[in-house]
Design a protein around this nucleic acid. Structure first.
Lengths: 160, 160
DNA sequence: TATTGTTATACTCTATAACTATA
DNA sequence: TATAGTTATAGAGTATAACAATA
């Protein structure tokens, strides 16, 4: 849907100096919308919101997470995460267990039903993601992974 | 995740064990969270939510959009978009004008204040995005742009 | 009839502030 | 004091359904 127009206009507006990185910036934004929308699509079939789907997928790939860490992963305030987990727990998808070594903290893990839904939706997302990159050469895929990981680790710490 | 050690960004970061595309899928998901979170960060300084910021940025790069098209761009139901634009309009950031050639439709465009905020936040996002990729070689950036654009256009139409 | 958009409704999602309980 | 988490509150965001107006 009009990414040509987008590229042109944004290019004119933003890319002034030598490197014209604007197209890459825009490409990344579009890609990100697309990727995260996969969670919404995958969840819809199971009556899950995008946020619930992201939550399930974030937990299943880690097995067991502290609320604290989960908040950082999902970029959520602790109270927002509380509510999100509350609704998932109320629906029987996950449970909180106290960390006995630090009784302020809680571990979050999936129930059987949670694992079922998480597996399904996670697989859905991965399949669609794989399909999106399937036409790239293996070499391109490997290179892309490396570059993306670099960007992520650079962006994760907002230094300088 | 600590690839700081390597001197060059290309294949080195990725150990080429067989098949496993999971790292790429995961990397893309993490990246997407990071990228879209930039809108939230950029908007916060101006008391804008992530969605309002995305809305402003989507409109400013197009100048003038139909509600219909905007909904597709942002992946929103028409009623959801109605509310989003309502709040932006109520705040004096944009206005709806009737399309006289098709009186069912509306055009959305930014007010002066809307343009100001949109320019600021859009610039913020772009700057941070540029910073995230600034340490890649120019060649890598170009190649990455091409690959990302390929993925996006492949994912936009779910025709496998 | 089909399309473009709004309104009504009922949720979910989110951040801020104040709180409890551990450490 | 500092940290991990909850609760209260208020508002934003979202989808579904029903509706109006135009094509």
């Amino acid at each position: 849907m009009g990414e040509n127009v987008l590229g042109d206009e944004l290019g004119d507006a933003v890319d002034d100096v030598e490197g014209r990185q604007a197209p890459l910036a825009l490409a990344l934004v579009d890609l990100s919308h697309l990727v995260l929308h996969l969670f919404a699509d995958a969840g819809r079939a199971y009556d899950l919101t995008q946020q619930q789907t992201e939550l399930l997928c974030a937990v299943i790939v880690r097995g067991r997470v502290r609320m604290n860490e989960l908040g950082k992963i999902l970029h959520l305030e602790k109270s927002s995460l509380s509510g999100l987990v509350d609704r998932a727990e109320r629906r029987g998808l996950m449970i909180r267990t106290r960390d006995e070594s630090d009784r302020r903290a809680y571990w979050v893990e999936l129930t059987g039903e949670g694992i079922r839904l998480a597996t399904q939706t996670h697989s859905d997302v991965t399949v669609r993601l794989d399909r999106m990159i399937s036409h790239l050469s293996l070499d391109s895929q490997k290179r892309l992974t490396g570059v993306v990981n670099q960007i992520t680790s650079a962006g994760a710490r907002p230094d300088r």
